[in-house]
Design a protein around this nucleic acid. Structure first.
Lengths: 105, 105
DNA sequence: TTTAGTACTTGACAATGCAAGGTAGTATGT
DNA sequence: ACATACTACCTTGCATTGTCAAGTACTAAA
């Protein structure tokens, strides 16, 4: 997969995932991987960024299957940010698709 | 506009433009700007990259409206590359859209 | 001759993804 | 007890690519 296409979109996919329900990092890596190839070294720094920007809050929870999990919960600011980003993506994607189709004629 | 969405897509838009007809840099800046905001400092290095990678060939042509124009002509390799990239983009965009819709439920 | 428009180039910078490595806890098999 | 594997988290250094800002140079119109 083209690595460059992902730029910015990963953030949107992570936000959109966490909107639905609180999730922990490792779980997000697997969730996001269903849509685009991604590895841990990408997701963890991204989660830290979004938390620093107050789009996420975190809490720890014990697990019976390994070390404690750090859950990410979306904030009000995160919800707004996600809605905005999604709108921008839809508009962007449709512009690009429109251009490609136009040139195809 | 989200700067990150553009990564990789600009290359596709530039390639797709030049597939149709030979174009010069300044003309491409204006053409591409119809789809996504972009500035000269982005396009010229991109054209140089694509030329170095043998996806474009160039030639100079005099102009009555300023300095000579450097025209870009797509090569066979460039055509293949463009087709590939376009295919990847379509697949990528549809995956992302699909994910967003699925989460919306 | 000054200004505006066309045209190209470059260098320092920022954002973001990747590869590779490290730390730990739990569970399973020997 | 020990090794292995899976879960879970985190960090560092790097590459790629877009942005900003500045500079060069030619033509034409005021």
């Amino acid at each position: 997969m083209n690595a460059q296409f992902k730029k910015g979109v990963l953030e949107l996919i992570v936000l959109k995932s966490v909107v639905n329900k609180d999730m922990y990092g490792y779980e997000l890596v697997e969730e996001v991987s269903k849509v685009v190839d991604v590895n841990e070294g990408t997701i963890y720094p991204l989660l830290k960024r979004l938390t620093n920007d107050h789009h996420f809050e975190t809490y720890l929870k014990e697990s019976t299957e390994g070390p404690p999990r750090k859950y990410y919960h979306i904030t009000a600011s995160g919800i707004l940010y996600e809605e905005n980003l999604e709108e921008e993506w839809v508009e962007f994607a449709s512009k690009v698709s429109g251009f490609l189709k136009e040139k195809k004629k």
